[in-house]
Write a protein that binds this DNA or RNA. Structure first.
Lengths: 160, 160, 160, 160
DNA sequence: TTTT
DNA sequence: TTTT
């Protein structure tokens, strides 16, 4: 056992596809998607330019953050993600053990913020039916859209 | 109003003095202390060595983290602190406005972890009476001490 | 002196004004600006909504990051900033000591990334003469603009 | 290609074994080791206690940080690690593709700090012959030990 | 005011 | 002083 440890990942990147929403065995919704980060540099000696894209698997168990993802995150959305590293063991079709490392966001000490100046809904063709309804309600209530996104983030604890 | 913003501070440093515990107007306890971080470097040209210590004011409103501070953080303790920057305005004795910047830890998205291999109680003469009792109980339950410190951190919401 | 300490600030926010560029006594350029972060929440009991904006003073000494700020950061730009806390002592007009806390970005372990999907030049009336020329060149070379911004960030060491 | 992205991992944990030092094809030394982080919590409903340890693969290419690892990091050392996520593709003995995710520390925007109050040499039986010599030199120069560790961290790349 |  |  270890004491006094920290396991934190901070990413800013763009969703490669629309997020997937699934329901866990205990009836709670979870969201997952991949985001890309990339770096480019010029080799000191050869002067040649290189660019490398890294893909990160994000898995969200926080009820409040799942809601934000469902409502606003789409393919192409730029997001700030703060979570923890988790390496998961699974068995492939040949019966051999495999490991996959993901960035997981639980209720505690996690965050997800949309960084697109405009919300990212227009980035995807997929718009769930309840979506526009939702949008209308929120504009009715506060005359502001991203504001409510932010609210849901801050009010993380309740009701989840 | 702003959308999609992040305000995060991560510090690892040592307490300069025992923490101060106060009760706010709404009857909740808060903790405050200063921690030091320092950097040393050698000047590129002169080759002279320099060292600079920075002091950070930490203010804790999270009930759970206040409990950890009360029970375990003492002068000299090394801590990991994660919070937000807040600049507070106040009026000095001459009636002129002053500003003080602090690192605040609320319930949401904050963390405090003790990094001393042994807990830091021996670093201070101050040992509240309920303290030893607490220590005994915890050892009884789990045969481990740092473990319980960690527990209290992770189980942030409950019971604190 | 302290060992094993960390002093890190991570902010995502918007510039309140165009950045200021100055030359230090040793002939190097530095940049400074303020960025806003804000949080909004609904009070658990009263249900009233609150919103608080925090302003952060950013001071940049890294030659490479100063160049990015000069070329691309303007009033309204959204930026990711990673630096260190520094509290500076100064004397006001009445001869009394004052303290100001800033987020400083030196060459080491600092970062500044523009998060606007489009570069933020259109956010300001100020456009240095060499600017458009620059833009043309870069589009010629890579057919992409943000890419070069990123390049300059990654290639931090040289020539800045 | 992506612009304005961030890929950052911050870990505090303990080395599971002594680090491995290897030489890359271009003749530079690299270091690798695993560190453990762990979380424990009590289930809200059942009240049962759980504890989970996560292992992270760390790979260091920064010359300055490799030196610190060689000289001071040992099995059991508690370290602060700041790097980037990288998923590496390889082929197993059956010819099937596998992926491994690691935390890599290059020169740029990486950090490694030893958090043990005392340096961690006594944590391992392994003490390379040049080690004690090194220790003597450093004490001769500055009368301080951890100080030099910190120097090397700050003066990462050298010559700065 | 800490720490090495 | 920003942003939505």
């Amino acid at each position: 056992m270890s004491s006094g440890t920290i396991n934190k990942v901070i990413l800013v990147g763009n969703l490669g596809k629309d997020p997937e929403i699934r329901t866990t065995q205990n009836g709670k919704e979870m969201a997952s998607f991949s985001i890309a980060t990339s770096e480019s540099w010029t080799d000191k000696f050869s002067g040649t330019r290189s660019e490398k894209t890294e893909w990160h698997n994000i898995v969200i168990f926080s009820e409040g953050l799942v809601k934000i993802v469902k409502d606003f995150a789409r393919k192409g959305s730029k997001v700030y993600v703060e979570g923890s590293l988790r390496t998961r063991k699974w068995t492939d079709q040949n019966g051999s053990e495999r490991y996959t490392t993901e960035v997981v966001l639980y209720n505690f000490n996690s965050a997800l913020t949309l960084l697109d100046s405009r919300n990212s809904m227009s980035n995807s063709d997929y718009k769930p039916s309840e979506y526009k309804q939702n949008e209308t309600e929120q504009k009715d209530k506060h005359g502001s859209f991203d504001n409510d996104i932010k609210d849901e983030l801050i009010d993380d604890e309740i009701p989840f």
